[in-house]
Simulated scan of single mutants.
Amino acid sequence: MKKVIEPSEFINLKGIEYFNFEEDFMEDNVRCIPMIVRFKMDAVGIKLKLAEWSKFNAYERVELAIKPIPNSTALNEYHNYLVGLIKKYTDNEATIIAVDKSPAWRELNQIQPILKEKLQELDLHISINQWKNLSDIQRFVLLKLCRPGHENKNFPKAMLEFGLS
C-alpha cells in the first residue's frame, strides 16, 4: 500500500515564496528543507542537515520560512535562532559555513556557466532579460538545482513553474 503524503505546512503559507515543485522534495520519508529556508541559511552561514530539520516542530519550521532577514540585525537574530534550535534538538553545534558576500544569484548581467551548461544539456534557454526578471529566490533555486550531485529532476519543473520553458 502506497503511503499518502500530506501537503507541507508551506504550501499555502502567506508571505513567502514557496514553489509547487517543492512538494515533491522527499528524502527518507522526510520533507526536505524548503528553498526559502535554504536561501536564508546561506545568508546566515549555517548548513542544516535534514536530520536536524526533521526534529524541529511545524511552528519552528514555519518560523524559519517566514522570518524576514532584511538587515544585519535580522540576519544575526535568524542565525542565533537556528543555532538555538539545532542545539535544543540535537545537542550539537550548528555547522557554520562561509557567507558568500557576492552570491551568483545576485549577478544580473550574466547567467552563470553552471546554469548555462544545465540549460544546454536539457536543450533549454534563458535570456538575460528573463534572468533579470526572476526574483532573488528564483535565481537562487535555479542555481541550486543545477549543481552536480543535486536531484536535478526538479530543475525542469522549476523552469516550467517560473515560466521559462
Rank of each mutant, 00 (worst) to 15 (best):
N80V: 10
Y59H: 03
Y89W: 02
A58H: 08
P103I: 12
E121L: 01
K144M: 10
A74C: 06
Y81C: 07
E107G: 00
N152C: 08
P70A: 11
K88W: 03
R147Y: 11
D91Q: 10
H125D: 12
E107M: 09
I126N: 05
Y81L: 14
I96P: 09
E121Y: 00
N109P: 02
D91P: 00
Y78T: 04
A98C: 04
I137L: 04
A94N: 09
L122C: 05
I66N: 01
E117Y: 05
W131N: 12
N57H: 08
I66P: 00
N80S: 14
I114L: 07
N129F: 08
V141L: 03
N76W: 06
L108T: 04
S127H: 07
I128D: 02
D91M: 06
V99L: 02
C146K: 04
Q112W: 01
K132W: 03
K67Q: 13
L143S: 10
A58W: 03
P68M: 07
V83Q: 11
Y78W: 02
R61A: 13
L143P: 03
P148Q: 13
D123A: 14
E107Q: 14
G84V: 00
P148D: 12
L64A: 15
D91S: 14
L143Y: 05
E60R: 02
D136Y: 05
Y78A: 04
I126T: 08
N92G: 00
N109I: 05
I111N: 09
